[in-house]
Amino acid sequence: MKDLRIYFIFCLFLISLKGLAQEKKYFGQTEIGMSVGRSEELWDGNREKRRDFTLQSFHGAKISKSHVVGFSVGFDRYDHLSIIPFAFGYRGFLGDEGKSRLFGGLDLGIGSTILEKKTRDEWSKSWYQGGLLFSPSIGVSFPSRKGSSALSLSVAYKRQELSFFQGTLDRSGSQAPASKKLPPGFSSLSETESLYQRMVFCIGLIY
């Protein structure tokens, strides 16, 4: 189901890109940066500082002079995890074209854990499951001399949910009654729901 959604979004993106490029309404922005936050509460009650890499590429269509809607894909690290975010996005600009402009953005989508390995052995099984992504941002764009591209600096809040499942397989050979809470074949399952909340500082290129 999750994979289907990703393919669907990706196809939409490809279709829109082709159509829009021809009409020169295409808007692209690729950003690289760092996400900053603090870890969950550790055993001693403290929180560690977290700094991780982030990359995002937004592709959209100008629906008017100041508004762009589109789609973004990227790569986010959260501690030891690698996430591929897919999101629908909006960018809105304040100010005149050809000059430095203030912009705001909003991305809403999902983070995929496709890069994370699933493990399974004789006794247990563990895997990650991606979750919702929400990220509002603000920034400033500085146009190049030719005016066809611009440099962007932005700061965003990024909220990413994901789950880690770790199950012990039921090896008793007995047939346990089905349960909504526990998938068949497991004698126990733990779900760790993680919520990552980060400030993201990015430098990017608008084209």
Partner: peptide
């Protein structure tokens, strides 16, 4: 920004 940028983790154990 007023929300703290902190990660949260909750684990639910389900067992038979």
């Amino acid at each position: 920004i007023f929300f703290s940028c902190q990660d949260e983790m909750t684990t639910t154990y389900t067992y038979r």
